[in-house]
């Protein structure tokens, strides 16, 4: 029963990835019109157009182009960037670890903070502390990421002068220097991601708290603290794992903004540069990496919530 559901989710994940690749391909290769026309511009003659199409295989039907594109993607041949002519895989290779490292650090910092704060707020509902956390997190999720980054720059870089506002990574700094330079982008992302996670953790615990067996525990006089830690938390773990995976997925959009503001040499910055110069092969590759990661994380969230549900683990 459970195995079947997990496999089913994985199947849905693969189908989603497939549909995503179709959407990306459609939007970047078919909908903009004739690529040969765009590349060669006004001065193109019918002969040069035909030659360009033949050279790049554009004269083949769309579905053939799609499958050859998909095959190239799957085997790691991501094509050549329009700007500079470097292979896209080499461009991505030099950037992707920066992004992975930053996302990993953010997850490492924000997950414990959010679960603790969420629990804390759920333990004292209706108090000033809870209201403060609720209002603070609501405000944080209501504003754009760049707002938080701008305020942090204003406070920590301009007024207090503690941290640099742009990072000029030289590659030769000690890890302490490196951490100081990275502090501001990390802080921005931690704030953005934590706010979501705190809200969802709090809501998850409060949701469990309204179930009958908790009422029973309250009626038999178990202290509130013990109820939350012994009774509610166990049943909220599933939703919380779900929340964590979902929020790591939200990191994807946070990273785009933060890497641009602080000019961090990550994958997202590469993609934005690609969008600005309309370097479509580069955008395709980056989009597939980001969307693939996103779909994968959502899939993990889905499977985690199935695995943590005892009713599915021990079918009758």
């Amino acid at each position: 029963m459970m195995m079947r559901m997990v496999l089913q989710r994985m199947g849905i994940g693969i189908v989603t990835l497939f549909v995503v690749s179709v959407i990306v391909f459609l939007m970047t290769s078919i909908l903009p019109g004739d690529v040969a026309n765009i590349v060669l511009g006004q001065s193109a003659t019918p002969e040069t157009l035909a030659a360009y199409r033949a050279e790049h295989g554009l004269d083949r039907p769309a579905y053939v182009r799609y499958f050859s594109w998909l095959g190239d993607m799957a085997t790691g041949d991501l094509g050549v960037s329009k700007a500079g002519g470097a292979t896209i895989s080499s461009l991505i290779d030099s950037r992707i670890w920066n992004t992975v490292m930053m996302a990993g650090l953010v997850a490492l910092i924000s997950i414990p903070i959010s679960i603790l704060l969420g629990l804390w707020a759920a333990m004292h509902p209706g108090t000033w502390l809870d209201r403060g956390v609720t209002f603070g997190t609501l405000s944080t999720i209501s504003v754009p990421e760049f707002f938080i980054a701008t305020i942090l720059v204003l406070v920590f870089a301009v007024q207090l002068k503690w941290l640099p506002s742009t990072l000029n990574l030289t590659g030769s700094e000690t890890w302490l220097e490196w951490l100081r330079k990275l502090a501001m982008p990390l802080l921005t992302l931690v704030i953005v991601v934590s706010a979501q996670m705190i809200r969802m953790t709090r809501a998850g615990i409060l949701n469990v708290m309204s179930s009958p067996y908790i009422e029973m525990a309250i009626l038999k006089g178990v202290p509130r603290r013990r109820i939350i830690l012994r009774h509610a938390l166990h049943n909220a773990i599933g939703p919380i794992v779900n929340v964590i995976a979902l929020n790591l997925a939200y990191l994807v959009s946070g990273v785009v903004i933060v890497e641009t503001i602080f000019s961090y040499p990550g994958l997202a910055k590469l993609m934005i540069d690609g969008v600005q110069t309309r370097d479509l092969p580069l955008v395709q590759a980056c989009a597939m990496i980001f969307c693939g990661t996103y779909v994968l994380l959502i899939l993990i969230a889905d499977i985690a919530s199935i695995l943590s549900n005892p009713r599915l683990r021990h079918p009758k």
Partner: peptide
Amino acid sequence: RVNDAILALPAIMLGLIAIAAFG
């Protein structure tokens, strides 16, 4: 199905792809 696939992607990614494609 189409709806779920679009919903399964981060909005900003779709936005970036659309702008790369159409300006």
